[in-house]
């Protein structure tokens, strides 16, 4: 596409301050100048050639401004990588995610060493609740100092919650994949409960606050699944392949509730 530029007649007239330029021409020229570097350069040459008085005035103003400008630091061109990352994770989430990954590795080590827990895989046992901790950290009043500002922003709400949840899963799932692959647990066996727990946390979080929902769910998981499993050294029904349809149903229900109550994430309640 070839861009049309302003004619020399208009630019020269504008530089001289001619009164015979129509108002709409002046307006259109100024709008064009804002966006067009070529024409700004042509105007600057025209001013030097046609209107020495204006050029002198500009020179004086510039001379006055220069010392002030020298005192102002120029804007850095490069963005810090942490600023980009903050669109996915709040800085306060980073230590939590590190902890989650650390716990995964620890469970994996214990599995490989095969101490105490018998036939039960610790990775499988912990996988469903690990991302829940990360999700809680992503949307909580206690852990995110800027929670009230975040909740009041236009971008707050389901979109931001999902974005942060996705980044939590993006870190946790690969770690669990490695763990599952090493210990030989089927992917669906832990991935489905893991996603179901995340969706349920968000769904409950819309009502009672994400942090509180995460704490409740983690407690329920510990009491109903982890404790009996460790006591009997047998994988409970919930984590065997027979339990998968139930987890699928919970996941679907959780997603449904989250979508139906999406407005709840843009008020202060979901931050409790």
């Amino acid at each position: 596409m070839s861009v049309e530029h302003a004619s020399m007649r208009i630019i020269d007239g504008y530089a001289r301050g001619d009164t015979d330029l129509a108002a709409d021409e002046v307006w259109a020229l100024e709008a064009h100048l804002e966006a067009c570097r070529v024409c700004r350069d042509r105007l600057s040459t025209a001013v030097t050639a046609q209107a020495p008085a204006v050029a002198a005035l500009v020179g004086t103003v510039w001379a006055d401004l220069e010392p002030q400008l020298a005192g102002t630091a120029p804007m850095p061109r490069r963005r810090h990588w942490s600023a980009r990352l903050s669109r996915w994770l709040t800085p306060t989430m980073v230590p939590w995610l590190a902890m989650v990954v650390g716990v995964t590795l620890l469970a994996l080590l214990l599995d490989l060493a095969d101490t105490g827990s018998g036939e039960v895989s610790l990775v499988l046992l912990l996988a469903p609740v690990l991302p829940v901790l990360g999700v809680a950290a992503s949307w909580s009043r206690g852990l995110d100092p800027a929670y009230e500002l975040t909740a009041s922003a236009p971008r707050a709400g389901l979109y931001l919650v999902l974005r942060r949840t996705a980044s939590v899963l993006g870190v946790v799932v690969p770690a669990l994949l490695v763990g599952g692959w090493v210990t030989g647990v089927m992917v669906a066996q832990w991935l489905l409960p893991c996603l179901a727990f995340t969706a349920t946390t968000l769904a409950l979080g819309g009502v009672v606050g994400v942090t509180r929902a995460a704490a409740w769910l983690a407690a329920v998981w510990a009491a109903v699944v982890v404790a009996p499993t460790l006591a009997t050294s047998r994988t409970t029904f919930a984590l065997q392949t027979g339990g998968l349809p139930a987890w699928g149903l919970i996941l679907a229900l959780g997603i449904g509730v989250v979508i139906a109550r999406r407005g709840a994430y843009s008020v202060l309640g979901a931050h409790r």
Binding site: M75, P76, R79, H80, S82, A83, S86, R87, T90, P91, T92, P145, A146, L149, T150, A153, P154, R155, A156, L160
Partner: peptide, 17 residues
């Protein structure tokens, strides 16, 4: 966020807005 510079923080808020 304590680790952010003033510019980074205001930029982050502008993005949120």
């Amino acid at each position: 966020y304590k680790r952010f510079t003033v510019r980074e923080f205001v930029e982050y808020m502008a993005w949120l807005k």
